[in-house]
């Protein structure tokens, strides 16, 4: 186990290094730059700006400098917000996105699993069709349609919750629902089919034949095994949701991290592009790693040491 963890760690660092290198050269290769604007700045001003941010140096040197700073955990200053560092932007935005993301993951997992099991247990009855239909519908409504509908109904018409901004638990309700909608539907569908498959397994029949109650079989043996595909999906889903969604954060005016994934590219805010990409990659690698460990704990068929990785 220890050797496995070490190997995973080294692999992750190598992956991060590759991502950093690729993104660095790709973003410098696309046209445009952080100081481009419809009204061209005088050459003197551009020269000063380039000197200030060391963009006047050869790309290779910029790369080496950036990687050096990265090793010390310094992500550099933002070009768009000259008074703020990328570290500040991430450390302020991530807790907000993560809080919202955690709430959404919780809602999606609870509601999704419940609905999936509910549908599977009522296989081919109206409850099943209703759940599957709703899930398909919910999954296919894009979030930029869902969010304004939520705002219109619960904020403008009913006045129960604020339409936007951040601060209190009440502010979290609508963005959480909007963010959780898609994953809930997906988890419900995943859980349903996985549960149906598990219930047809021999060991379930054996357990029932041994005289265990249906309820005990479903809860102790069925759900636990049916969860495996859901947990596999949970990794990338959690990483994506925790680091924030551009659309949700924009519509609900949430000061999270998600916005930077889009605006930094539009602005060619090089340091922010690097910062958020690496941060997201780190979270994704870490969560996938944790999920692998969880697999071992819940599924005796999976073994880290024998998998030959």
């Amino acid at each position: 186990m220890g050797g496995y963890i070490l190997r995973r760690l080294v692999n992750s660092l190598l992956a991060l290094f590759t991502i950093a290198t690729l993104v660095f050269f790709l973003m410098h290769a696309v046209p445009g730059g952080p100081f481009a604007s419809e009204k061209k700045l005088p050459p003197e001003v551009i020269r000063n700006l380039n000197a200030r941010y060391h963009l006047d140096q050869p790309l290779r040197k910029q790369y080496v400098d950036y990687m050096g700073n990265l090793l010390c955990g310094d992500l550099g200053p933002s070009f768009k917000y000259p008074d703020r560092t990328v570290n500040e932007l991430i450390s302020e935005g991530f807790p907000v996105s993560a809080a919202l993301g955690m709430a959404a993951v919780f809602v999606a997992v609870t509601a999704g699993c419940f609905l999936g099991v509910f549908a599977a247990l009522n296989h081919n009855r109206w409850q099943d069709f209703l759940t599957v239909g709703l899930a398909a519908l919910n999954y296919s409504i894009p979030v930029f349609v869902m969010a304004p509908i939520l705002v219109y109904v619960f904020s403008i018409k009913l006045g129960w919750v604020p339409p936007a901004m951040w601060g209190t638990a009440r502010h979290m309700v609508l963005p959480t629902l909007a963010l959780a909608a898609g994953p809930t539907a997906f988890i419900a569908a995943l859980m349903r089919s996985s549960m149906l498959e598990v219930l047809r397994q021999d060991y379930i029949r054996t357990a029932l034949a041994k005289g265990l109650s249906y309820r005990a079989v479903v809860f102790r043996h069925g759900i636990k095994n049916a969860l495996i595909p859901v947990i596999a999906y949970l990794g990338p889903m959690t990483a994506a949701v925790l680091t924030g969604s551009f659309v949700i954060e924009k519509i609900f005016a949430i000061p999270g991290l998600g916005e930077y994934f889009v605006t930094s590219v539009i602005n060619r805010d090089y340091t922010v592009i690097m910062g958020v990409t690496l941060f997201y990659s780190t979270i994704l690698l870490a969560i996938n790693f944790m999920i692998d460990i969880v697999f071992v704990l819940i599924d005796p068929r999976i073994s880290l040491t024998r998998s030959g990785r």
Partner: peptide, 9 residues
């Protein structure tokens, strides 16, 4: 349909 599901959530 979307709304009823939301309410359920």
């Amino acid at each position: 349909m979307a709304l009823s599901l939301i309410l359920l959530f």
